[in-house]
Design a protein around this nucleic acid. Structure first.
Lengths: 105, 105
DNA sequence: TATAAAGTTTCAAATTTAAGAAACTTTGTC
DNA sequence: GACAAAGTTTCTTAAATTTGAAACTTTATA
């Protein structure tokens, strides 16, 4: 059976991955790799209302993946863990090549 | 706006992270880092019914993170992308230390 | 002060996901 | 053939997510 520590660690990691489990949030993180952006810019780039963008960003913030900084009426979001995206690229590559190998492509 | 390619890439990555976004599935992947296990062993270790374990494993398989191999009445699952878990550990560490820094712990 | 811009929060509706139980397959053994 | 073990699938219910619209804050400016 799982120990208490194992359970806590699995919960924490699953929680982090849940924050990453949405295309819009992946897109935001990739944009934030370039530089900081405010909510309205990200919303426009993604083609979604700013209320939705705000909610996605607050999920990323809650997970510790981004940080925010007020600047006038704007709120600038920035990446706190760039390695997470390198992870995404690497994992994506590995998984993709596995699937291709399997499908014989 | 997002290009079609960006959209596809974001969808694919989000899909992979969705497969990782459950504590049981993280636990299974960590167990599979040791060696292959069959469904009933994983189910028992996690303390869940085998039908649930089977469903979680098929999600991991569909995402290309594990592979299966029939052996008598058993189905052995194995890890296809061990790097995903190393990266999980790394990201987890980074995010954790960010949050600690922020909370001043 | 009045107005506009940027963000957040709230609300209800729609969609997705997870869970357990039961039925069903397949494989191996008596 | 009968039976048991291991897995998968199906079904229903419960819970969590996502969505857009609208209301509401806060800050800057005419």
């Amino acid at each position: 059976m799982l120990t208490k520590d194992e359970q806590i660690r699995c919960d924490r990691r699953a929680h982090m991955f849940k924050a990453l489990a949405h295309p819009i949030r992946i897109f935001f993180l990739e944009k934030l790799k370039e530089r900081s952006w405010c909510v309205c810019e990200l919303a426009e780039n993604a083609g979604i209302p700013k209320s939705a963008a705000s909610k996605h960003l607050s999920q990323l913030k809650e997970a510790g993946l981004v940080d925010d900084c007020k600047n006038g009426t704007r709120v600038e979001y920035s990446l706190t863990a760039p390695c997470v995206l390198d992870l995404a690229a690497c994992a994506d590559g590995t998984v993709l090549s596995n699937r291709r190998k399997k499908l014989g492509i």
